[in-house]
């Protein structure tokens, strides 16, 4: 998702977006916010055409509390990424906010706070105390993973697959030494599949956000951001984490320790 070169069209779009934000604000009345999500259980998934998942639940509650009309559609991540930049009133869920793409969206953040770590087979005995200690090993990740890209950027040996769950087999069959993933997905997959994996080392925390088109009126962005902060402060987000992941959650309460 790193944008390395910005076309003149993109720059024009950026300018148009900012100018419209800076100039007279459009009314929020009647605006329908189109949210584009992609399959990434347990955070976002479409089952029987119903949007489900932790990030989806956070956004649903957010929209209800803010009183905005919205819809959620599932599309491939690349399409969500492009459409949220090119089509007014569209937002992408849930995207890792980074310096390289900061200028491309307006942000409602954080929708998710997740820690990421290296997992190994329970019988493996790697001595990994820091991120650098993982450098000699082959690390499994999946295409589109911000954490996989982070590791690749710093020269780690990353083996990408098309979806995160495929890393389970690769780790079991020792085709990768370590699996880099967030602790929530890992806990879910380990529990559901009764896997003999262990967390070896935690190395990164990410904030994931909703990235919206630059022309989305500032009053909407501000309202959503303020409502989201209220959801954190009154414990609603914590409740969603707990209720969604039942009795096996390593989520925000783990972050709090």
């Amino acid at each position: 998702m790193v944008v390395s070169n910005m076309s003149s069209r993109t720059v024009s779009l950026l300018l148009a977006g900012w100018l419209s934000v800076i100039s007279a604000l459009a009314s929020a009345e009647g605006t329908v916010i189109h949210i584009l999500a992609y399959q990434q259980p347990p955070f976002m998934e479409s089952r029987n055409n119903k949007p489900l998942g932790l990030a989806v639940d956070v956004v649903k509650l957010l929209m209800e509390r803010a009183g905005f009309d919205y819809d959620i559609n599932f599309v491939p991540p690349k399409r969500a990424y492009v459409t949220a930049q090119s089509s007014p009133n569209h937002c992408m869920l849930a995207i890792e906010r980074a310096q390289t793409i900061e200028a491309l969206f307006q942000w409602i953040s954080p929708i998710l706070i997740t820690r990421h770590g290296f997992y190994s087979n329970a019988s493996d005995k790697y001595d990994i105390r820091t991120l650098q200690d993982a450098r000699p090993y082959v690390i499994g990740s999946y295409l589109g993973s911000g954490v996989g890209e982070y590791l690749e950027k710093y020269g780690f040996n990353v083996d990408f697959v098309s979806s995160n769950d495929l890393n389970i087999l690769k780790l079991q069959r020792k085709r990768v030494d370590l699996w880099a993933t967030d602790t929530i997905s890992a806990a879910r997959l380990i529990y559901e599949n009764d896997l003999q994996f262990k967390l070896v080392h935690t190395f990164l925390t990410t904030l994931r956000a909703m990235g919206c088109h630059l022309s989305l009126p500032q009053e909407i962005v501000g309202r959503l951001q303020s409502e989201l902060m209220g959801m954190y402060q009154d414990g609603s987000v914590e409740t969603l984490y707990q209720s969604y992941l039942g009795t096996h959650p390593p989520q925000l309460s783990d972050i709090q320790e």
Partner: peptide
């Protein structure tokens, strides 16, 4: 953890605003 300076600032602000000890 090591991350971009803008991310450090964003996380500092997020911790202040959400009141979660990230």
């Amino acid at each position: 953890e090591i991350t971009g300076e803008d991310d450090v600032v964003r996380k500092l602000l997020a911790q202040i605003e959400t009141q979660y000890n990230i």
